[in-house]
């Protein structure tokens, strides 16, 4: 027996010590529990609703996949996901192209860099509701761009992008690009600045033009950023709701329905909760299809980098 135990009269840690030892876990528990419920319980819950015959109110009578069957045979859902593909393609390419152009322009040691960046990025600070509302006014043939151009003398100018069911989706694409090309710019610029200056210098000494230096030396180095930007934007495209709600509200007719609009509409306007939940599960599936391979790729790349270090 050691003297310490005799003197102190203690065996093992005190209550206080135990509490101190457990603090890290105790601190984490509420957040963990909440996140667990939010991520797993909610998903399984919604999955279950999607397999039930819930209509105006949730019910828990199991009906198998019938909500999914009726979802995929619904014309409006077909429009919703074709819109999603169309939007994603143009929006991602457009925002990345403009974002890259702006980043390269700013990278030419321009004066007032902070000012340019502030201008290109501010749309990101305001909500899609604000953006969508303003742009819906600009697209309005009576008061917006059409009136401006006609007022300048081109009196038979027609610009009714958002009010024509065939073109309204492009109004959303343009607005989406306006809102987030600054974001692509910020990421690309961060990438350009991380490129080893010696690499660039070497290319310039070899007599490569600026354009060639970018194409052959700089852009390949920041290739992973292209992927990251694309993944983030696909993710955003799948979740698109606010922008459409403020800009076209899914119209004219049902021409600009998106999956997220469809979910909202079925759950809260039409009282078809089961099918709405099925549509929500499809959104989750779409996100998983993009994000699961991407996260495996990121982990793989990180391991590779660590091995090289």
């Amino acid at each position: 027996m050691s003297t310490a135990e005799v003197d102190g009269g203690q065996v093992g840690p005190t209550w206080r010590e135990r509490l101190t030892k457990a603090s890290p876990v105790l601190v984490l528990v509420p957040s963990l529990a909440a996140s667990f419920i939010y991520i797993f319980v909610f998903t399984i819950w919604t999955l279950y609703i999607s397999l039930s015959n819930s209509s105006l109110l949730p019910s828990y009578d199991f009906v198998g996949l019938s909500n999914y069957v009726s979802l995929w045979s619904n014309r409006r859902w077909n429009i919703a996901y074709s819109n999603l593909f169309l939007f994603s393609a143009f929006y991602i390419v457009g925002a990345m192209a403009i974002g890259l152009l702006l980043a390269i322009l700013i990278d030419q040691r321009v004066r007032g860099e902070a000012m340019w960046r502030t201008i290109f990025l501010y749309p990101l600070a305001v909500s899609f509701i604000v953006t969508g509302t303003v742009w819906s006014w600009l697209y309005n043939p009576v008061d917006g761009i059409q009136m401006l151009v006609r007022g300048l003398g081109w009196t038979d100018f027609n610009f009714a992008l958002a009010s024509d069911r065939n073109t309204a989706i492009y109004a959303i694409i343009i607005t989406g690009i306006w809102q987030s090309s600054g974001f692509a710019m910020a990421l690309f610029l961060a990438g350009l600045r991380s490129v080893d200056p010696d690499l660039v210098k070497a290319a310039q000494i070899d007599g490569a033009s600026t354009f060639r230096t970018y194409r052959k030396v700089i852009l390949p180095v920041i290739a992973p950023i292209f992927l990251a930007v694309a993944v983030i934007q696909i993710q955003f495209a799948i979740k698109t709701f606010d922008l459409v709600a403020a800009l076209t509200r899914g119209g004219p007719g049902i021409s600009t329905t998106f999956p997220a609009i469809y979910v909202y509409d079925l759950m809260f306007q039409r009282g078809q909760i089961g099918e709405g939940a099925a549509a929500a599960m499809m959104m989750l599936a779409a996100l998983a299809v993009v994000l699961v391979p991407y996260s495996f790729y990121v982990v793989w790349r990180r391991r590779k980098e660590n091995r090289h270090d």
């Binding site: 996140s35 319980v41 909610f42 919604t46 709701f241 996100l287």
Partner: peptide
């Protein structure tokens, strides 16, 4: 696992 919350679409959480 907590990071998964970053990607969850809000639509999944609406009914719960």
């Amino acid at each position: 696992l907590m990071l998964l919350g970053v990607f969850m679409p809000g639509q999944i959480a609406l009914m719960p």
